[in-house]
Design a protein around this nucleic acid. Structure first.
Lengths: 334, 334
DNA sequence: CTGAAAGCGCTAACAC
DNA sequence: GTGTTAGCGCTTTCAG
């Protein structure tokens, strides 16, 4: 603050242009003597280049917006960190925004980000939205969508997890273990995410010649509290020996309810979660789950975005990461 | 992008100044007719004001840097969310940075933030640092320190938790329950945080006329893995009926080790954690712990920072939040 | 090798 | 009520 490129130029007896070139390593044609003098002066006066001014002329802020529902949701810290790491490696910073799955907030934030001239946005859409994001022609920032599959006009990329495979893997694992009555505790079936997992579940059942029964699919939300309540509500109205949960939080809630009902996991009921959040390996019993590569998702999303930004990639890049079955202690042979 | 204030001015047949005034609600002296015309035009052409340009002249970006060790550490999402919420309420955005407790990264990030002209920084210092942050005269951004108590030249505020009280509360709870052999599984005793908790522990002991024994303090780090190992290593070399852990993660590791050693929590050993992270109420047994008001810390830190920014508060504001004993299921009468 | 000039999009006196 | 002018700190032709 205070000392500018002009000051340095004056002190060094050169023009601002020269200093600018040196700062930006466009100094092939600058004599070593001049360069050294300028560099020394910059150090001496503790010169800090003003990127805002630079951005104004270059139209590039090296800042990316990360729009997620809520960083407190254990799903997102990993993703955010992956995003931040890649951004940092490439010389970008991340502005993060919590939308609480609220469409209004989403638009408000995106607007703010556009005003601040972010170079692009990585966006996890509200699970309450349908699969269309009606931005219309309103914004024009490059966007990469992550985790939740959604269509946005002019989108630059999509990084999702193959939820179909995940749903299939989890169910198959349970079937392999001999389970046949497998309850599916699903998140909101409005989102493609949940729907695809359910499809995977059906596919596995079919492979094992187990009839699909609608009663075995319970729709709720992605919170631990709901998992708890769902299990309690079901009681023994439905007979089951295994639970496939829409995410780990639901699984954790379910385990708690089961314990209270004096049912043992995995002895009485096997449980498979989805996500592999941080705490899943820390709870008792350690949770068998489908690991989502969250860190990688954030990392890749930023990677694709920056690639689109810097190399003017025109084609939309879609990546479907493969989730992985992590077998721990919450599932057992029937 | 594309359409600027000048364009709008031209379309409306007024000067850019007039449009600027309208945008910024400094329009007491603008006729309703003009205002309406301009407003309509802005909407029609989907005008997005360029805050970068604005920042360049006002020297204010309405952006704040949040520098923390690692968003994946369950301690920080809450804090980050509190910070973001307050920032958002006040019309600011947050750039977040993960330093991995690495002093070099810290400085690199702060540098980047200064270059981007953030209005201020909220900073959680590395636990590996001593209590002095040798910025020297290098930077000049307003800084508010959060969580970790550290002295920085020209600091604008400090938001910490009273760890002494926390240490006291946890230990007293155990003493009240009849425990006398209380192991203290501490984080790195280099930081004031840990030291103060230990002091609280001693104070409580003293009040109950229990002699302090150095052997009962084990120094490690704040990871669950360490809690696990510590308990395993101790085995029955030291006799204890209760564990007071430096944080919840340590406690979770300890519980796991204890289970493996066929010791029951809380029947055989009582455990108190520290932090009350998200998962603490979800594990088995639900953890008795000292709740740190993380959300509030982030919230307050931003609040103080913005206050200093906008009202030119000159005196350093220090807030010591009081932690709270949350009694759950991991402690029992001796 | 180096610099002069113009301009990025906006705001802030001050004048009318 | 509204416009003129100047300038924020930087980069970018283009000329020499």
């Amino acid at each position: 603050m205070g000392i500018t490129i002009k000051d340095i130029a004056k002190f060094a007896g050169v023009s601002a242009t020269t200093v600018s070139k040196i700062i930006n390593n466009k100094d092939e044609n600058i004599s070593d003597a001049t360069r050294q003098r300028v560099l020394d002066l910059m150090k001496e006066y503790n010169y800090v280049p003003n990127k805002i001014a630079k951005s104004l002329v270059t139209k590039k802020t090296n800042t990316i917006g990360l729009v997620i529902p809520d960083i407190r949701n254990p799903f997102f810290p990993e993703l955010a960190r992956g995003a931040e790491d890649r951004a940092n490696e490439k010389g970008y910073n991340i502005i993060f925004c919590n939308t609480d799955d609220d469409a209004e907030k989403e638009e408000k934030y995106i607007n703010m980000l556009v005003e601040k001239m972010v170079d692009g946005i990585v966006f996890t859409a509200s699970s309450r939205r349908g699969s269309e994001f009606n931005k219309g022609n309103k914004f024009s920032v490059p966007i990469v969508v992550v985790d939740r599959d959604i269509d946005i006009e002019g989108i630059k990329g999509k990084v999702t997890v193959d939820n179909f495979i995940g749903g299939y893997q989890g169910t198959k694992h349970l079937l392999d273990l001999g389970h046949r009555e497998i309850l599916f505790l699903s998140g909101p079936l409005k989102s493609k995410t949940s729907i695809n997992r359910l499809e995977g579940y059906k596919k596995a059942l079919k492979e094992f010649n187990v009839d699909f029964d609608e009663e075995y699919v319970i729709e709720g939300n992605y919170k631990s509290q709901w998992g708890y309540e769902a299990v309690k509500n079901i009681g023994n109205k439905i007979k089951y020996t295994a639970l496939f949960c829409g995410n780990d939080l639901i699984a954790i809630g379910a385990i708690k309810a089961l314990k209270e009902m004096k049912l043992k996991v995995p002895d009485d009921v096997s449980i498979v979660g989805f996500d592999d959040i941080y705490m899943s390996s820390l709870i008792d019993p350690e949770l068998t789950t489908i690991r989502q590569p969250n860190y990688e998702m954030g990392y890749k999303a930023i990677d694709i975005l920056i690639d689109a930004l810097e190399n003017k990639e025109k084609n939309v890049k879609k990546i479907d990461l493969i989730p992985q079955l992590i077998i721990r202690k919450s599932t057992l042979k029937r």
